[in-house]
Design a protein around this nucleic acid. Structure first.
Lengths: 193, 193
DNA sequence: AGAAGCCGACCGGCTGGACGGTATGATTCT
DNA sequence: AGAATCATACCGTCCAGCCGGTCGGCTTCT
């Protein structure tokens, strides 16, 4: 298959789709709405993406690539040590909490839209996630701690996304602090051994 | 508002809705499909639930009540101690792993359907979740540990639901083992103090 | 050079079907 | 009887995908 070509028009449509889903909700995600937001006719939109499903898949793909790049960079900036992966994720999440919120909210809504339409669309996200877990398992520290923390980060993401958790900055900060405490505990223990 | 009356017909429709969403996907969740599955006409269905949104809300409500009852019972069966909530959740999840999978998959798909249609529909789930977090904070053990584990359980649920994680029993068992290790570690530490 | 032919990008109207909801009649229960 | 519980038929809307057509740039032939 031909690699996804990155033309400005394509990217503009993708951005517009994200905006519509994020701002107006998953139910409002229609081809007309996206075309209007992108300043493009529906015909023009369908010229780039042969179907709504294809658009959704491209959206998840771009998102997953972005996410993967982000967390790989965040992890790389942490000196080698136990639970390095978890520490990297947590650092990135805390360092730019607001940015993290924005991006994660948008990503999550896209995921929901993709799942609702066709679960096959989340494949790129699955690959990115599997890659992350692989990195976590290769950590120096105890595997179980790395895994648990990675899942806790995901739990935080999803819970917040679904509105299960209060979205107040205080609440989020508290939860992040809890996770940080776990990481620190594991690091201390590893250092003492 | 009048309390939700539990009639057999209502419950049958609710069951049918769950089946359709679980078996055929969120996109196939239409009033016609649910009515057909329930062996009821669409008019009959709409007699019980005035709108699709109402049906979805009722679905989430029943699910949340069920879930709340389950975890409260699971927690109650754990002797008082540190991270009792986390221990209870984990026990329930491990004791009947297969049942847990089934129920959680269905619940998750319902949540996605509800979110896609109208995020306001997840309110009952939010309340159940807040209640769980409240219980976790009242635990004897360190709050941060309880919180982290609760979120990890949620992360496992969501990740698995979105197909982010391999659904193989081995993989799931491994992750559960990781979480269990965290719980045990906290319990040990609390005991030594 | 320049006319002719071509091709990808894009437009916008259209349609056919699906889907949520309504209106009204039939049937059963109390 | 009369209320509750359905069934049947139907309506209006919305939306994904299609299709004929336009425009501008690029190549090819002469």
């Amino acid at each position: 298959m031909d690699r996804d070509v990155k033309t400005p028009a394509r990217d503009a449509v993708l951005n517009a789709a994200e905006v519509v889903i994020d701002r107006d909700g998953v139910a409002a995600f229609t081809l007309d709405a996206v075309a209007k937001e992108a300043g493009v006719s529906k015909g023009g939109l369908l010229h780039h993406f042969p179907s709504k499903d294809a658009l959704l898949l491209a959206l998840v793909t771009r998102m997953s690539d972005q996410w993967r790049g982000d967390y790989e960079q965040a992890i790389a900036s942490v000196p080698a040590g136990p639970v390095r992966v978890a520490r990297g994720l947590l650092n990135a999440c805390i360092a730019d909490a607001e940015g993290w919120n924005d991006q994660m909210r948008r990503s999550g809504k896209v995921m929901i839209a993709a799942m609702a339409a066709n679960p096959a669309n989340v494949k790129p996200a699955r690959e990115a996630h599997e890659n992350l877990l692989r990195l976590a398992i290769q950590d120096q520290g105890p595997t179980w701690a790395s895994e648990a923390i990675v899942f806790a980060m995901h739990g935080l993401w999803f819970s917040w996304l679904f509105g299960l958790t209060d979205a107040s900055p205080d609440q989020l900060a508290q939860i992040r602090a809890s996770l940080q405490k776990v990481v620190e505990r594991v690091e201390q223990e590893a250092a003492m051994r």
